Amino acid sequence: MAALIHIENLSRHYGDYCAVAGVSFDLQPGEILGFLGPNGAGKSTTMQIISGVLAASSGRVQLDGYDLHAEPIKAKRRLGYLPEVPPLYPDMQVDEYLSYCARLHRITRSEVAQAVARAKERCGLSAMGARVIGNLSKGYQQRVGIAQAIIHNPRIIILDEPTSGLDPNQVQEIRRLIQGLAEESGILLSTHILPEVQSLCDRVLILHQGRLVYAGPVSQQQQDRVLVSLATDNSDTRLLETLPGVRQVEPLGPQQYRLTLDGHHSPADIAEAIVKQGGRLAELRSDQDDLERIFSQVTLGEQIQ
């Protein structure tokens, strides 16, 4: 299946400073791809290059098969973009603003009303058309921002911090909206909220100092590691290393370990094997903080095992 976004050796320099260095990745249809990194990592620069706002110093960007440099208009038509600060006009009504956005995307006059209605329905704004944007809650303003990004029915959607500043109920609503959008589009989601990535994303990319330092599936990182606490003596490590399905044993504290599994054995298999070999199992649970651990390791310059 052809990638919706294909990035190849992307770089951006500001004089002697390199903001993005040789970044390459793909976004597949129907995928929600998490885009992480500490402040100053180059995420915003990369997204601005992909959206055509900023020129790359070198490298290649393809959007749904169109080269952004060679065919910029065709490429940008495939893309919807919500920046961290939504580009809203607070004095305009929702319908007025979305109609304006539709015309910017060169939707024909006869199709504008249909495009606005469809975007409002997808974003839960059907009853808000006559409301002034500045009078809406932050959550509904975010919905309007997403609606302008999808008004032209793009195959690619870039969302930069879409739940920033929202209350917990609004966050859940926006997350459900994003999941619905992924049924028809590929989504690149930039956020600092790791639980959001774990709940929404199929894969994750981590950028650090302009370089892509990690790429992998979110689900795998949660499934192939478990945390174990034993109530035994100093032979714990040797006992755990002999268990079938255990690829690595990482001591965390007294009788506490992180086990990396081979993907063919479940946590229940590990618990049963520990008991059979005479170990006294105090606790065994999934490593729920795995993505946070990976993020800390790669952004602090350590190696992922």
Results as ranks from 00 to 15, higher is better:
Thr191Ile: 01
Ile187Phe: 07
Val116Thr: 03
Ile150His: 05
Leu136Phe: 01
Asp224Lys: 09
Gln209Phe: 11
Ser164Glu: 14
Ser219Trp: 10
Val213Arg: 06
Asp202Phe: 06
Leu159Thr: 02
Asp224Glu: 11
Leu188Cys: 10
Asp202Ser: 09
Gly210Ile: 04
Gln114Val: 09
Ile151Arg: 00
Leu205Ala: 08
Ala215Phe: 08
Lys120Ala: 13
Ala182Val: 09
Asp167Leu: 04
Arg131Lys: 10
Arg143Tyr: 08
Gly145Tyr: 12
Ala115Val: 02
Ile187Asn: 03
Gly145Cys: 01
Ile156Asn: 01
Thr191Val: 02
Leu205Ser: 08
Gly180Asn: 14
Val144Ala: 15
Leu136Met: 14
Gln221Pro: 13
Leu166Tyr: 03
Leu166Phe: 04
His208Val: 08
Gln220Leu: 14
Asp167Phe: 06
Asp202Glu: 06
Gly139Val: 06
Tyr140Pro: 11
Asn135Ala: 12
Ile133Thr: 07
Gln198Thr: 11
Gly216Thr: 06
Gly139Trp: 04
Val144His: 14
Gln170Ala: 04
Gln148Val: 05
Leu166Arg: 02
Lys120Arg: 15
Glu183Arg: 15
Ser229Asn: 11
Arg155Met: 11
Val204Ser: 12
Gly180Met: 09
Thr191Asn: 02
His208Tyr: 08
His192Phe: 00
Ala130Pro: 02
Cys201His: 00
Leu125Thr: 03
Ala182Ser: 05
Leu188Pro: 00
Ile206Trp: 11
Val213Cys: 13
Asn153Pro: 13
Arg225Trp: 11
Lys138Trp: 06
Leu230Lys: 11
Val226Phe: 00
Ala149Gln: 02
Leu227His: 15
Asp167Thr: 07
Pro162Leu: 03
Ala215Pro: 04
Gly129Ala: 12
Ser126Thr: 15
Gly134Leu: 03
Ser219Leu: 14
Arg203Ala: 06
His192Pro: 03
Thr163Glu: 00
Ile146Trp: 15
Cys123Val: 00
Ala215Cys: 13
Gln209Trp: 11
Arg131Cys: 07
Val204Gln: 05
Ile158Ser: 07
Cys201Trp: 00
Val228Asn: 11
Thr232Ile: 15
Ala215Ile: 08
Glu173Asp: 15
Thr163Val: 14
Cys201Asn: 03
Gly139Ile: 07
Glu196Ala: 01
Ser229Pro: 09
Gln170Val: 02
Gln148Glu: 05
Ser229Glu: 12
Gly165Asp: 10
Asn135His: 08
Leu159Tyr: 04
Ala127Ser: 09
Ala119Asp: 00
Arg225Met: 14
Glu121Gly: 10
Pro217Tyr: 12
